[in-house]
Write a protein that binds this DNA or RNA. Sequence first.
RNA 1: GCCCUGGUGGUGUAGCCCGGCCUAGCAUCAGCGGCUGUCGCCCGCUGGACGCGGGUUCAAAUCCCGCCCAGGGCGCCA
Length: 437
Amino acid sequence: MTIPSEWRRTHLSKEINPSLSGSRVVVLGMILSVRRQGGLCFIILQDGCGMIQVTAHKDKIPSQIFDKLVELKPHSYIGVKGIVKAIEKAPRGVEVEAEDLYVFSEPKKLPPFEMFAKTLPSLDKRLEIRAVDLRRPKSQAIFKLKHQVLQSIRNFLVERNFIEVNTPKIISSATEGGATLFPLLYYDKEAFLAQSPQLYKEQLSSVFERVFEIGPVFRAEKFKTPRHLSEITSVDVEMAFADYRDVMNLLEEMIDYVIRNLIDKCSEELQLLEVKFEEAKTPFKRITYDEAYNILKDLGVEVSWGEDFSTLALKKLGQINKGFYFITDWPTISKPFYIKPKDDNSEISESFDLMYGSLELSSGGSRISSRDLLVKRLKQQGLNPKLFDYHLRIYDYGMPPHAGLGLGLERLMMAITGISNIREVTLFPRDQSRLTP
RNA sequence: GCCCUGGUGGUGUAGCCCGGCCUAGCAUCAGCGGCUGUCGCCCGCUGGACGCGGGUUCAAAUCCCGCCCAGGGCGCCA
């Protein structure tokens, strides 16, 4: 539809403030709520960046405009032309007193949830019409925060001379073994959706020294938990002439930077979601795998040295350690083939996981930069070095020491918002049973 | 792959264990009416539900079996 020229927006909701009092404006947006009080009507109009209260007085405007306005339902997309009034009783001390109305769209039906409801339908029901669910201010706030987190991460890394790269998501073989990949047909060959940009970013660190990628990764494990998805956003960082201690320091600084930025720029969203950041003080605690192992043993939790901690074990650790903390120096056997064993003890690796309570947010470490050692480690892990030839051949031409990390963006959002279901912090989550929307 | 829990109007729930007093309660919502400073408004009236199939019983929302769907846990998992 062509938008009539007199119904072009003059101001966004957030631009309307008491100093504009008396000016005539056109605001466009979607109705969140309509409340009528006799001859007075209050409408909360939401646009892309906030909301503004619109009022209509029966005795000040033509009756057909007033009558139309009061019968409008939430989810109607409208334009309102009116005068800005600075009024203390209005939210933010300002409102638009309507003179004219333009209706772009009215809903044929109402969604199964209310815009400000205290009780919500199950997430499953809401996901069926996710874009409508996102009209709820609280739902939107999550993704405005996520956007700001992404912006902050980019700013932080770029300020430190990292460059952003993009690597293939269609790959020929298992990146690191272990995880189940999604197979697909690539012309007449078998291919897979990438589980990680790991090997590509390592190669690129030999060129640009500092690289990062923010993009989707895919896992075909049949998870059915509130913290796993089949498709997630991974923040991958790799840097040359660095080891795992440098990476941990970088990650810690980055999270601190991200949180400071949120406090600075997203106070409304944080308030709406009741986020406090009480458990986000740097420096983050660092405990070694062996220390964690002994703590768990003393608690009577079943642990076997060399293995990843079980869900139960992580829960116990999370009870002891609130907020962010590192678990460092993992047994080499528990880590992927490219993680560097310690020079003085090859049983232990230069590696870390960043935890938030019992939730694993990130893992990383120093990487092996010798081809021979990589081949040895591949064999130890039961992987066929021939399948990795496209990667290993690069090492013949020299490779600086390097280290890096992978961070699950959605997991970070769970930690930041305190939301316990990863689907809630993902616009269109993919899991075992959900391929739409 | 295995185990556990749940499914009641559009939505969220009570009732189920211990069958009858359920003509299924409450809140929200929707429809109609009233209200000129609301902001999760308020007031009055009206409306709407036991996941699907089978069984037991004089009687099933309630007990049993199967199926479907959802949630959670284990295993597994940068």
